[in-house]
């Protein structure tokens, strides 16, 4: 219980309620003077968001110099940079809240895999261009309404970041969505590949909308959007793009879960071995 729910690496335990992800009962959290419990929840949220963005940014950056055309050699790192920017905001904010002298780099480079809180989709290897672009589309179709809702919510720091992120994500949706359409309605090979990507990715989409006592508490406190609202917009974006792409209706049969509790796939360890190499090989140095 402790390992799965410990917000390890940030030096504190998650509140007990995190141990029961199915628990639907929202806690009452004071709105204006954030109590300790709400601060813990906020830290947990920052790790989830930060890790989603860091790990997906890492995967996207692997394309740099290897993309199908020069324009994509520019576009993919461009999106990776946006994702990295959000990850840095989250970790920087977490470090301030914790106030223990940590920096953004401590969160990225000095936690082990089971302390990471991102969804499983983002750590999956890139596969082909269809897989990468469809994953990006799903993520953007989720994050865009997420940030849109966030602009009006209670945490001023997150609300301010949301203003910027909404613009970035609108571009990510457009860019990846146009590719989903081109590939779906392109050649027989591209249609087959995007179809295969959809089969492979579908089980990883549900985790985007997963709620647990932490997220429910934050939604109740007005810090986190209502996932149902976000999901409605996600569904509409996906349906519209898939129609144009002549892809079948998106209806996943099941959803993998575990990332938010640190239960990852085998790929994460290898990704971190690369991501964290320098800080592990040369501990405590400044770069």
């Amino acid at each position: 219980m402790v390992s799965a729910d410990n917000i390890a690496g940030i030096g504190m335990s998650a509140p007990d309620h995190a141990a029961q992800p199915q628990d639907p009962a929202p806690r009452q959290v004071p709105g204006d003077l954030p109590g300790r419990a709400q601060q813990d929840d906020l830290l947990a949220l920052l790790m989830r968001l930060g890790d989603d963005h860091l790990i997906l940014g890492h995967r996207l950056s692997e394309w740099c110099g290897h993309a199908p055309m020069l324009e994509e050699d520019l576009a993919l790192p461009n999106m990776a940079l946006d994702l990295l920017g959000t990850a840095r905001m989250c970790y920087g904010y977490a470090a301030e809240i914790e106030g223990s002298g940590k920096t953004e780099d401590d969160y990225a480079f000095l936690r082990d895999g089971t302390a990471f809180r991102h969804i499983l989709m983002v750590e999956q290897p890139n596969g082909d261009f269809a897989y990468t672009i469809l994953r990006q589309f799903f993520f953007a179709a989720f994050m865009h309404p997420f940030w849109q809702e966030m602009t009006g919510l209670a945490d001023p720091r997150l609300a301010a970041h949301a203003q910027k992120a909404v613009k970035e994500l609108a571009y990510h949706i457009r860019h990846s969505g146009e590719w989903v359409i081109r590939l779906g309605d392109g050649t027989p090979e591209s249609a087959r590949r995007i179809g295969d990507a959809l089969d492979a990715l579908s089980p990883y989409v549900g985790e985007l909308f997963e709620t647990d006592s932490i997220s429910i508490a934050l939604t109740t406190a007005g810090v986190l959007p209502d996932m149902e609202v976000v999901q409605r917009q996600f569904d509409a974006t996906v349906a519209q793009t898939f129609r144009a792409a002549t892809l079948p209706d998106y209806a996943p049969e099941f959803a993998h879960s575990g990332g938010r509790r640190g239960r990852h796939t085998e790929y994460l360890g290898h990704l971190l071995a690369e991501l964290q190499f320098m800080q592990r090989a040369y501990p405590g140095q400044s770069w």
Binding site: H66, A67, P68, M69, E72, L183, G186, T187, S190, R193
Partner: peptide
């Protein structure tokens, strides 16, 4: 990169 991307460029043209 060029070979692996061929089907992507073909799809873009076909679309």
């Amino acid at each position: 990169a060029w070979d692996d991307g061929a089907w992507v460029r073909e799809a873009a043209l076909a679309h």
